[in-house]
């Protein structure tokens, strides 16, 4: 847990660069696969759910915050390669032009590869604005009822997962992102 938190701060120095330089480096990389120049644009970000694609090898991303089973982590370019499993929560994508997009994910996986490609695969994902808070509350009470009625460990675990997910959705809808 603690380790994941410290990773938050790795290589923050690379984030602030001259945009012109960044543009150039992106171009040289596209033409001649230049070695990593240390700019944030080196990150190739893919974020998709089975039915929707949000980013495909996008270069315009500075930082991504993801909730994983081993804690929340922020990913910048040249992050240490990791494999992780998502937990229900909010993924924040900070784009180069200053926009921040937030998505709710139910579960999934994150992979940061040695070549700085980041792959975020969510089982279900949607923009935060699309969360129906009332439906989430309904799902929560339904799941709680089922947890009470659960007969075996498996049912219990399933109900617990639903509760976690619904709680996270409610939190996300009310504007609590971490």
């Amino acid at each position: 847990m603690a380790m994941a938190a410290t990773r938050f701060l790795i290589r923050t120095a690379t984030a602030s660069r001259n945009p012109v330089f960044r543009l150039m480096s992106a171009r040289t990389q596209a033409t001649s696969a230049a070695p990593a120049s240390g700019s944030a644009a080196d990150m190739l970000f893919t974020f998709a759910s089975p039915s929707e694609v949000f980013y495909t090898q996008a270069k315009n991303v500075r930082q991504i915050d993801v909730p994983t089973m081993s804690g929340n982590m922020g990913i910048l370019a040249h992050h240490v390669p990791i494999l992780g499993v998502l937990k229900p929560g909010v993924v924040s994508v900070f784009e180069l032009d200053g926009n921040t997009k937030r998505f709710f994910v139910s579960s999934g996986s994150i992979a940061v590869h040695p070549d700085s490609t980041v792959q975020l695969l969510a089982e279900e994902a949607t923009a935060i604005e699309n969360i129906d808070s009332k439906a989430a509350h309904d799902a929560l009470s339904e799941a709680q009822r089922r947890l009470g009625a659960a007969k075996d460990e498996k049912q219990k675990a399933e109900a617990q997962i639903e509760i976690d997910c619904a709680e996270a959705a409610i939190k996300a809808a009310s504007g609590v992102y971490q």
């Binding site: 494999l83 499993v85 992979a111 695969l121």
Partner: peptide, 14 residues
């Protein structure tokens, strides 16, 4: 980094 067996197993299954 930090690929413990549990994470790896979940990751692989997903």
């Amino acid at each position: 980094d930090s690929t413990d067996a549990d994470v790896l197993r979940s990751f692989q299954e997903f």
